[in-house]
Structures are given as structure tokens and as C-alpha cells.
């Protein structure tokens, strides 16, 4: 990133169920979010108990231009002064990704701007840069979201290496499925964690999958199944009890957080990390944030996590990632639902 240059990037995100646009400025290395608009389809998907890909794509088509227009208006940036357009090209749902990519390509072509193809997972990482705090390397970064649970080693601000991943379900997926099991609704993460606040985390002894293993990989399907077994011990009538559900949620959340903490800390020690970063949708979870922050500080390391609204999907993080990415000719922009780090 060159110092003393003022650049403004328009970010576009449509990989899953949020349609989002943002304008992010970087002046001599300092980030400023000029506008950050997210239109969530949560309400639409709620009645189905989850994202319905077909509906998601159709809504992206309807919302994407109004959202971009709104972001431009809010930021008061004239499109003449935009230095480039960044768009998430994967991973995600193909039908949703295509909407964002096609829009970005069209605008880039019309406005004659460079375009940046952004890996959505890298963007979750670069959301940390929006805090404008100096970052010491090496850094161990936990990305924990609906589709992913991975540890990444950053040797400097552009060198990333995947250390580990989940062997089955992602942590956010486990939150969503537990919510479904207990008939609590969608999206599971915020609902389960809100319930958990009213429950006893010691009420149920759930496993801490892989916590003792020597590697850094995760596994959450066993925990999902443990919640299933525990809930099957009660009659459907008993299962309606708020207290019982709150206890199940609290015990489940505690198990997830402990595993995420243990593995991240183990990796940080192994790689002599100076910084620990936490991002992705599940990073919005308060217990996870507090637990990891406390532990990191005790070790004398620096802890970074984006504001909760920059943890879940947004376009400011897509724009932020563009400052670390080379542009791609618009003709070569391709979406890849299975893109990895």
C-alpha cells in the first residue's frame, strides 16, 4: 500500500444472503468508512428456517443497484473520484455471487475503473484493518463463519497460509443447526447466543471435539449430535421449556467457544504469534470475543477483532481487501463458489 495516496474503493458483496455496498477511503494508510450499507434478507429467509438460494439470488438482483446508489449518496462521493471497484467473487452461492460480479463488471466498464476480485474469506481477515491499529506479525487469525472455520497464519500483511480448518461442520453452521434442532428459528447464531445468556453453561456436559488433538483442526458435527441426543431425552412438551432450551444453548455455546479458544491459542504459541485476530460472522459472538481477548491479553499478545457489524457479511471488508489486491481486467473476472484461502 503506497503512503500518502488517497484512494476510494467501492466494495460490493452478495455472496450469501446480504446485499451490501460500501465506500472505503484510504489516506496514507489510514482507513475511513465513508458509507457501509447492508440489506439483509434475514426476515425473508426466517420463515423458511434458513437461506433459500433461489430467493437470495432474486433479491440480490432487485437490491443491488439501489444499495450501491444509497452507499454513493451516503458517502457523498462522486463516482469520478472512485479509484476502483471491489467485488467478492467467492466462496459463496454461485447464483448470488454472479449478481455482484456482473454488476461490478458493468460499472467498471461503464465508469472505466479498475476492478478487484476479492476472496470473501480474505475480506473477513482484512476487516481487522478497518480498526486502524498497528499490526505486528506473525499473526494467527481465526475466521469463523457460516461456511468456514479456519486458522490462518499471516507472516506479513499479504502473505497468508491456511493452518487448519474444520473437518466437518463450520461453527456458524453448528449454531444454525442447533437452533433448528431446538426450533428456535433463523439465524441461529444470534438467537442461540441470546438464549445462552439466560442459561446455565454447566447444565449439560457436551464434548469439546478435538481439543486434545495435536493438530489445529476443528470438528463440530459431534457437538451438533450431542445436542441432538441431549434434547431427545426430553419429551416434546418438556422441550418447550424456555429454561431447558436456554441451558442447552448455554452449554453448547460454551463448548464451541472453548474449542475455538484452545485451538487458536495453541496455534498462536506454536507459530510465536504477536497478534491474534478474530473475524467472520461468528466473531460477532460476545462470549467468544471476551474469552479470546482475555486469554490473548494474559499472554501479552495483541488482540484484534472488527466491530460486530463488520464481522458478519458486509462490503466495507470487501473494499478494505482491495487495498491489498492487484486489479483484474474485467474480462477475466470469474466467480468461484468453492474458492479457498
Amino acid at each position: 500500500m503506497s503512503k500518502n495516496v488517497n484512494r476510494i474503493i467501492l466494495g460490493i458483496e452478495s455472496s450469501c444472503d446480504e446485499t451490501a455496498a460500501a465506500l472505503v477511503e484510504n489516506q496514507g494508510g489510514t482507513f475511513k468508512i465513508l458509507a457501509n450499507v447492508v440489506w439483509s434478507q434475514v426476515k425473508i429467509h426466517q420463515k423458511y428456517g434458513g437461506v433459500v438460494p433461489e430467493i437470495a439470488a432474486r433479491n440480490h438482483v432487485k437490491k443491488i443497484l439501489p444499495i450501491i446508489d444509497l452507499a454513493l449518496k451516503k458517502s457523498k462521493v462522486d463516482k469520478k473520484n472512485i479509484s476502483g471497484i471491489a467485488v467478492a467473487t467467492g466462496p459463496g452461492l454461485i447464483t448470488s455471487l454472479l449478481v455482484g460480479a456482473q454488476t461490478a463488471k458493468t460499472l467498471a466498464y461503464l465508469w472505466q475503473k479498475p476492478i478487484y476480485a476479492i476472496n470473501h474469506l480474505q475480506a473477513h481477515l482484512y476487516a481487522n484493518w478497518l480498526n486502524n491499529q498497528p499490526i505486528k506479525f506473525p499473526a494467527v487469525c481465526l475466521i469463523v463463519s457460516g461456511g468456514h472455520t479456519e486458522l490462518i497464519l499471516m507472516k506479513n500483511q499479504t502473505q497468508l497460509k491456511k493452518i487448519s480448518e474444520t473437518l466437518d461442520d463450520a461453527a456458524g453452521e453448528a449454531f444454525d443447526k442447533v437452533s433448528q434442532l431446538l426450533k428456535l428459528g433463523y439465524p441461529g447464531g444470534p438467537i442461540v447466543s441470546a438464549m445462552a445468556e439466560r442459561g446455565d453453561a454447566k447444565a449439560f456436559k457436551f464434548p469439546r471435539p478435538m481439543i486434545q488433538n495435536n493438530n489445529f483442526n476443528f470438528s463440530f458435527s459431534g457437538l451438533k449430535t450431542a445436542v441432538l441426543y441431549a434434547s431427545q431425552k426430553f419429551s416434546p412438551k418438556k422441550l418447550k421449556s424456555y429454561k431447558l432450551k436456554a441451558n442447552l444453548c448455554a452449554s453448547f455455546q460454551q463448548a464451541v467457544v472453548e474449542v475455538l479458544r484452545a485451538k487458536t491459542i495453541k496455534a498462536a504459541k506454536y507459530y510465536n504469534a504477536k497478534t491474534i485476530m478474530l473475524s467472520g460472522g461468528v466473531a460477532a459472538n460476545q462470549l467468544l470475543r471476551q474469552t479470546l481477548e482475555q486469554k490473548t491479553k494474559k499472554m501479552g499478545l495483541k488482540f484484534l477483532t472488527p466491530k460486530p457489524e463488520l464481522c458478519t457479511d458486509n462490503a466495507a471488508m470487501i473494499a478494505a481487501a482491495a487495498f491489498f489486491t492487484k486489479p483484474t481486467p474485467w474480462q477475466k473476472i470469474k466467480v468461484d463458489p468453492n474458492l479457498s484461502l
Binding site: T166, D169, A170, G172
Partner: peptide, 13 residues
Amino acid sequence: KTINSPTFILMKI
């Protein structure tokens, strides 16, 4: 390669 749950992404190849 690790085969993990495709619930979020629908399809893995």
C-alpha cells in the same frame, strides 16, 4: 482433500 459439510455452499466438487 478434507471433505467437510457443504450445507452452506450447497455443492463442492
